[in-house]
Amino acid sequence: MKTITKIFASSLAAIAIFTTTNLNAQTMTTTDAPMMESGMGFKVGVGISGGVFRDKSPLDYAYGADVKLQWDLTPYVAVTASGGYTKLMGKDNVLDVDFIPAKGGVKVFPIKRMYLATEAGAGFAIQDGAKTNFIYTGGLGYEFGGFDVGVRYEGYVNDSGSTLYFKKTGQYALRLAYNFKL
């Protein structure tokens, strides 16, 4: 089985476990009340991110900015959609890739304010002759007072017909964002 298939299957299994498990807390205090609303809320997050690649990768580091829409279905599960700009910098300035990522995913909050997230989507290349990448992510984060800090692994699968071809690779990234409630 391919690695991407294993990662995708593991992510789906984790989501299924977290969304079907009944979690019980001790008692709710007055500071917990805003978190325990009925859910069904919308947030818009504006963030920046930076990441590094493994030694075997032809890429060195990445940076970008994004806008993420979050629809809280319940206090424990949210659906996300994001888009933005990402720049992947190659080692020795041999390969530089600019693309617009468009992803959709799920956030699960197993512990108050802490989340596990997974997303999948496409990276639309900006350069002529470059092909669209498949992007998949998995990570965890923490939301507090409107701020959102998260770490993730973001993998890229590139089309071999692309003029900017690079082997399947991925970055370990940090995202800092601020969420606005709508």
Results as ranks from 00 to 15, higher is better:
F147M: 10
G141H: 07
T132S: 11
V149D: 00
E143K: 10
A130F: 12
G139W: 13
G129K: 08
Y153L: 05
A120S: 12
T137Y: 10
E143L: 05
V151Q: 05
I135M: 14
I126S: 00
A120T: 11
F134P: 00
F147R: 01
V149N: 00
E143S: 13
V149M: 10
G129W: 14
T137H: 12
D128T: 06
I135N: 09
F124H: 03
G139K: 03
E154M: 15
A122C: 05
E119Y: 01
A122S: 10
A125N: 12
Y142K: 02
G138A: 12
E143G: 09
G145F: 09
G150Y: 05
N133F: 11
G139S: 11
F144K: 05
A130L: 10
G138Q: 02
Y136F: 15
K131C: 14
F134N: 02
I126V: 09
Y156P: 03
G121P: 06
G138T: 07
A130K: 05
F134C: 03
N158I: 00
G129Y: 11
G150K: 08
I126P: 00
T137I: 04
Y156W: 12
A122V: 14
G155M: 02
A130G: 13
Y156M: 10
F147C: 03
F144S: 12
Y156F: 15
G155A: 15
Y156A: 01
F147I: 01
G129C: 13
Y156H: 15
E119T: 03
E143Q: 14
G139E: 12
G139I: 02
G155K: 01
N158R: 10
K131G: 14
L140E: 03
N158L: 03
E119M: 08
A120M: 12
R152E: 14
T118G: 15
T132W: 08
G150H: 04
L140K: 06
G129A: 12
F144Y: 13
A125F: 04
F147K: 01
A122G: 08
G141P: 12
A125C: 13
E119G: 04
E154Y: 01
F134T: 11
F144Q: 05
G155T: 00
A130N: 08
G129M: 12
A120I: 13
G139H: 09
T118F: 11
G146P: 11
V157K: 08
F144I: 15
K131Q: 14
R152M: 04
